[in-house]
Every structure is written in C-alpha cells, then in structure tokens.
Amino acid sequence: MIQARGLSKKYGEKTAVDHLEFTVRPGIVTGFLGPNGAGKSTTMRMILGLDRPTEGSVTVDGKAYADLPAPLHEVGALLEARSVHTGRSAYNHLRVLAATHGIADSRVHEVIELVGLGDVARRRAGAFSLGMGQRLGIAATLLGDPGTLILDEPVNGLDPDGILWIRNLLKGLAGEGRTVFVSSHLMSEMSLTAEHLIVIGKGRLIADLPIAEMIGSASRASVLVRSPDAARLRELLAGPDVTVTSRQAGELEVVGMTAPQIGDIAAADGIAIHELTPHRASLEEAFMELTNDSIEFHGGTTVGAHDEAARGVA
C-alpha cells in the first residue's frame, strides 16, 4: 500500500509534482500514467526517499521509506535511469545489494535464474544490452522478495518477448497479493497490464479510477460515412440524439446511430455509400477525452497540461 498525501516537489521555480493524493492498493497492478515530464519519475523517486518532497508526504505500508528497517524487503524498485555500476558483474551487483540486508547468496542465484540471466551473470553489467540491463534491474527489484514493487517505465527498450515477460511477471506478482505500481507514458501498454489507473499531467492528479471505468467512459462510438451525396444524407440523418460532423467534403462522422441504421436510411433514398466504418473509441482516445474533461474543470492554467498530455500519448 502506497499513500501520497499532498505530495509536492519544486525544483526552484518549476513545479514537478503538485499536491498529489492517491493510494495504491495491494493485489492489483496499478498503472501510473502520464506524458513524459508529467512528474511520474519524480513521484517514484520521492516514494523511495531519493528526492525529498517540498511539501506533503508519501508512505509505504504506513511508513516513510527511510524509516523502513529493511527497505529492500518491503519495496523493490526499478528506476528508469540506470542504477548499476558498469564495471561490476551482474552477480556481484546483486551480492552488493544483498549484503546490506544479510540476504543469502542462494537468493541472489534464485533471482538471476528467475530473470533468465544465468548465462551472463559473471559478465560486466556495462556490456549488457538494454534488455539484459532491464532484466538485471528486475532481479534487483525482486531480490528482497518485497510486498511492494515500484517500476518506472519497465518495458522501455524491451523487445516484444521481454515486454510480454514483464506483463506476465507483474500480473503474477500482483496475483500473489503484492502492491504493484508501474509507470508508463503509453496508454496501450497500461491497458494490457493494469487494473487500476492513476493519471497525472503536469504534476497534477487527473484521474484515479479502475481501468474498466475508463473504458466505459469511452462509450462514444461513431461511424465514418463517405458518400458522393453527403449533404443530402446529412439532412436525412438529423435527429435529436444524433450528431453529425464533417471534416471534409463527402465525409461524415455520425455519433448516435449504428452503421446498419445509416445504411438502411441511405438505401431507402437511393443514396450511394462508398464507405461505412464503425469506430469504437480506443483507450488512447478515452485518455484524451478524460484529460480534456479535467481541463474544463481546472480552467485556464491546465491548458498547457492538456497539450503536453496530447503529445505524450499521441
């Protein structure tokens, strides 16, 4: 369980994290979503006590990270930036960390096998590929068998095999009752792993909701219609619950009517149809819509956040 209360971080005049309030619960994967520069990494670094909050606090299982007697046993963290000495072998890197907690060598070998680095464990970590480095990071995360895992952009730079491996690993860890908090700037990635989402933009909380609810909010389904007689069709489609917009001549976007309904109306009046494509809003679009809404509530100052959000998820 991770709890942030009024968590804020300023670097000089620049506000990186702005009064964040959220709770990350055990047993599920919680996605931490936001565009690059939204403050995800800073938030995670504050959870780990690497950065000091300017205001507010964040606790893991009720304690500030620095007050945990055996932090690696409670929290495993994978930071986005590399955190391994390049001159040391993977095996020795893990031994160095294990020594601080009196963790046995057998556990070091166990996590090395678990992440599939058995063959290269004696090689210099500096010679590792991005994917191998990420696996070493995961091994360090699991070393203390912690009940809480914090991973900053874990799939960055991984090949499809590696991405699938991480997804299943995270789901498995959450299934064991652990708290799993994963950041990403990719909505699509989150939709495949997370059950709950915490969305931030420009350091502020935008949404904190189950992913199912997020999909529900994306109920807006539309139909793309192309017809040489679009103007006449548009008049025929008009109704109280129907919105028709047109981005270019001969093309209509219809909301509030299904593709068969539109086709029938066109056929009844002998209007030729060149294309009729139903379109369901993706999570990506739901995210955009969500941020759009929150911006209306927040007023002028967060317009910038929306722009950034739009770029980040595009």
Partner: peptide, 16 residues
C-alpha cells in the same frame, strides 16, 4: 490476501 514473504533478511545495520 496480502503477500507475506518467507525470505530471511536482516535489518540494515552499519555492519551490513
């Protein structure tokens, strides 16, 4: 339902 680890660890000390 909360995860309980059975791994043996020592608290961090100056010695460790």
């Amino acid at each position: 339902g909360r995860y309980v680890s059975r791994l043996a660890v020592d608290p961090v000390s100056q010695r460790s």
